[in-house]
Nucleic acid binder design. Structure first.
Lengths: 249, 249
DNA sequence: ACCGTCAAACTGTCCTACAGTTTAATCGTT
DNA sequence: AACGATTAAACTGTAGGACAGTTTGACGGT
């Protein structure tokens, strides 16, 4: 028999609390929307101090599992499953490792291309309908007088997000959302907001959509990759320096 | 002018502390390995209470930015940049969203394939040398009497990790590590540990490595994808039920 | 030179107190 | 009866103090 002991490190007691609550959430014992007991009650249930409970809640909050509100009906509420933790985790990585825009773009191109391919394979008519509706909204917004970066960006994000959803892989979806959120800030900062860019974007989306409609995975992937690459190049061109990303606004 | 006010939510004071310390770390004002001031000193510097400081430190610890030790030379030390936060973030996602092994595998195939392609394009002779050394170790270990799942797995992980490193994209690297760590537990649980599987693995790695050596990106990618797909299928075949992942050990 | 022992500098935990915030009930006024 | 203002209650947020537990290094005895 091969012994494989592992280093003994005393578990801090707030960790017990985190793990038990976390497990209860994962197992669905406390469904989304439901309130956890108040800090006082938790303190009694775990037979610990309020401070310890609060440290545990803080961690759960930062994992995106609960949100905490003050006031009489306040306290910790279980959140819907989301990719908050991954998002902030990637953000930390980006800022700490000084990930360059080129790296972000490379990764995005890979995922976005795959997503488009996969979507082309699996999209049903109702999926195509959803995409068409969003694209129509974008078109209308651009024609109307496209004075609003933010709204445009939200719509564009919706399109890409829906594409990811259609693939049916939550990991892919979460990663794309995460990448998008993190790249978004730089769009805002570095992408010149011109009518040209907007209509260019619309044209690209049209190409992708029609490939998805035709179930042509290869073209869809290719179009998506080119689309991403084009806008990344545009951004890089207007960046001041080395390409290392700086502080978020 | 279009006003775009955003919801006013009072910032909790521990957040100020988190942000200031975090920024100092990102900006390199406190280099890796360095100690932060003690809780008492921080409390005085931020003019707040020790509880508040502790909540902030807890968050920073969970973001993987510092590690905290007790004792006289203890306290919070700044960590090397790592992908800890992404890893736990993805783990949370997997367990909360009930991501299936098939989804994990699809994602892994995509990344691993891309990594191999990219590595084939950029690998220099010394990179190839590193891979060869690892592969030799694996071969030796398998021939020697491959009685040790853990060691084998560590070596296999090293190979894939090095491949990712060679690509030079920290995002890709972190994501692959993360995926690998999260899939690893299931390897252990579901992959039958047979001499056949081991030598099969070695053969696959040899194919990948020789494609990388030749700079043949297409073959390298293809080989990596097939390799991942094969082992994923093997695992799925021996899984008891729906394929939804269960609790980690 | 090799043990213990001990003090010092820390984090870990617990307690108490009170301020701030939100909800709902209650009361007073029209 | 309807509606606005006041207040009570149930919470979280912050502060401060106390003591236990852990690690390190220094001191002392053998």
């Amino acid at each position: 028999m091969t012994l494989s002991f592992t280093k003994m490190k005393p578990q801090k007691s707030y960790q017990h609390v985190v793990e038990q609550i976390q497990t209860a959430i994962f197992d669905g014992e406390i469904p989304p929307g439901e309130r956890l007991p108040s800090e006082m009650k938790l303190k009694d249930m775990f037979e610990t101090s309020r401070g310890t409970v609060r440290e545990a809640l803080r961690v759960l909050e930062h994992k995106g599992l609960v949100s905490i509100r003050t006031g009489v009906k306040g306290g910790a509420r279980v959140n819907e499953a989301n990719s908050e933790a991954m998002k902030t985790g990637m953000e930390t990585l980006i800022r700490h490792k000084k990930v360059s825009l080129a790296h972000l773009a490379e990764f995005r191109e890979l995922l976005e291309g795959h997503a488009a391919e996969q979507a082309a394979r699996t999209a049903g008519p109702e999926d195509v309908g959803r995409l068409e509706k969003i694209l129509a909204a974008i078109r209308e917004h651009v024609a109307d007088g496209p004075d609003n970066w933010d709204r445009f960006n939200r719509l564009d994000a919706r399109f890409h997000q829906t594409l990811a959803e259609i693939c049916g892989n939550p990991l892919l979806e979460a990663n794309l959302n995460t990448i998008h959120d993190n790249i978004h800030a730089y769009f805002h900062q570095y992408l010149p907001f011109s009518a040209d860019a907007l209509s260019d974007d619309v044209r690209d989306l049209e190409i992708i959509l029609s490939a998805v409609r035709d179930g042509d995975a290869k073209s869809a992937g290719e179009a998506a990759r080119q689309h991403v690459a084009k806008f990344s190049r545009l951004m890089e061109a207007s960046m001041p320096d080395t390409g290392s990303l700086r502080k978020m606004p």
